[in-house]
Design a protein around this nucleic acid. Structure first.
Lengths: 295, 295
DNA sequence: TCAACTATGCAACAAATGTTTCATGGCCGG
DNA sequence: CCGGCCATGAAACATTTGTTGCATAGTTGA
């Protein structure tokens, strides 16, 4: 057996354990170890034999590697890798903003961290889904946009941009007041865009249900596939709203989705959309909504 | 109306397929489907029986769910989820956006390029400036927020978030209509936030001038230090609105500034701000604005 | 009310999984 | 040169996996 227990490895991450132990391993195990380090996502999702085939190694080597690292078997190593990869380690966040007393630059550091996280979140948005949703908007006879509370800002942006080139066919849901949601007005052949994140407002969920019930095309912009407004949606556009503690959820991702959605819908509109946009712009310029731009 | 042939699933993401199909599924399958949607990471890594135990459902339900979605079995559904989650799909950027006339995926490439550019733009935002501006908001007796046209969405978000903990002291400029801009109401000791980018709307420039003239603290959120509303501003918060050709300027950066601005102002507000926020939240919960969140 | 139907849980099934054992082949010290 | 040692690959193992058939409970429509 492996004899002397060389335990007490770096507890930080199974991957770092692997790397540090790598040089002291037999040749073949190094090979396999490097493969695991380079393909850790596949290591967590695919089967041992699968990996072995792709790495050109023996299945048993994986078991042996795990044991050499101090695990009881490949299953346990994989479990460790899986946990290390788990997204949104939501656990120890409650203490976060609390702990440090307001240091001189703690705010600055926090803002920077937040911005960086949001930038990373943007790259995870699915462009293909946005393009698909834009096609649906393009073919819709009429477009409704529903967003409430803080999401209303996103709804209004979308409403504003779409109206630039389809003024007669785009409308905000609940424009007349909180009690009049127009929910009965949805029809098949129309599209309803609902924007929301947890905690989900009642109005947004009702809008989504009504849209689905009416047979309209439902496009949900939400923070989770488990969001109530995503149920029955024909298109689900996901973003990350993960909030810092005590802070409000982030809308950056939602905005970052709404804008290309409008843009692609516009480009699908072709010449006629361009014509409408020019008309709108001309009208705004005529009433001197803009100041002269600097050269 | 709930179409018989409403299939034709969205091929972009297995999770969207799941969401779309959810309402038309049998009760128990919905339950399981929601569980998968809410725990898609576990769905890709753990075993069917494991998930069943945690979801309190029958293992067979997972197989049946997969088949109901058009997959040949759970294995295939899981494979799809796994692929959708695979990191670093960032690779196919080489084909970029330039040359091709509307190819099949030129939109997708364009959206990806845009998102990446915006992510890069976020990291260039000055956190220190935001923190400074937040201090100014904190000490202001009253806060006005001005944003017009597409920038109105940003203004409304800021207005909404600040009002959560300072409801009596925050107000949108021009809430009553385009001709009534409240510009005469600004006073020294108050703060005015003006949001805008090129081309600059007349109303926003007028707001900024009025604020400066009245001796109020002027905070400009703009795309350039040369923006008219930045003239005479006490705080200038810059973001990149660089538009793709033919598209609208981007507001992602402005939103990314507005949110931490509100958040830091909140944290400066200390105990009293927290108290007001709790009150507001309690009121919203009491009028059942929210649906119950999933546990 | 009854029959046809679907949805659901249970249990048995074949296939695939991770592990272990064993035989082989290369390496070093005596 | 040889005997012990370890690394390595192949095959056999028990377990667990995903699946399917069946009986029951629940629902729908005539």
């Amino acid at each position: 057996m492996a004899g002397l227990l060389k335990l007490q490895p770096t507890r930080s991450s199974p991957l770092s354990e692997l790397c540090s132990a790598l040089p002291s391993l037999p040749l073949r195990l190094q090979e396999v170890g490097r493969f695991v380090a380079a393909n850790d996502y596949d290591a967590t999702t695919r089967s041992m034999r699968d990996l072995a085939a792709e790495a050109g190694a023996d299945p048993a080597a994986f078991t042996r590697l795990a044991k050499a690292l101090g695990y009881s078997g490949w299953d346990q190593l994989r479990a460790a890798l899986t946990e290390a990869r788990r997204p949104s380690q939501a656990s120890p966040f409650s203490g976060r903003a609390k702990g440090r007393r307001h240091g001189p630059d703690s705010d600055v550091a926090l803002i920077n961290a937040k911005l960086e996280a949001e930038a990373a979140g943007l790259t995870r948005i699915s462009a293909a889904s946005i393009a698909d949703a834009a096609k649906a908007l393009h073919t819709a006879r009429r477009i409704w946009i529903a967003g409430f509370r803080s999401c209303r800002s996103v709804a209004e942006l979308l409403n504003y941009e779409l109206r630039l080139f389809r003024p007669d066919e785009v409308q905000l849901v609940g424009g007349s007041g909180p009690e009049d949601l127009d929910l009965g007005a949805f029809r098949a052949g129309e599209a309803v865009v609902v924007i929301g994140f947890a905690p989900y407002s009642r109005a947004s969920v009702l809008s989504a249900r009504a849209a689905h019930g009416a047979g309209a095309t439902l496009i949900a912009i939400a923070d989770s596939p488990a969001a109530p407004m995503a149920e029955g949606a024909d298109h689900v556009l996901l973003y990350e709203a993960a909030a810092s503690p005590g802070f409000f959820p982030s809308l950056t991702g939602a905005i970052a989705i709404a804008q290309p959605l409008a843009a692609v819908t516009f480009s699908l509109g072709g010449a006629s959309a361009r014509k409408r946009l020019r008309e709108t712009e001309a009208r705004l310029a005529a009433t001197s909504q803009y100041v002269a731009e600097k050269g």
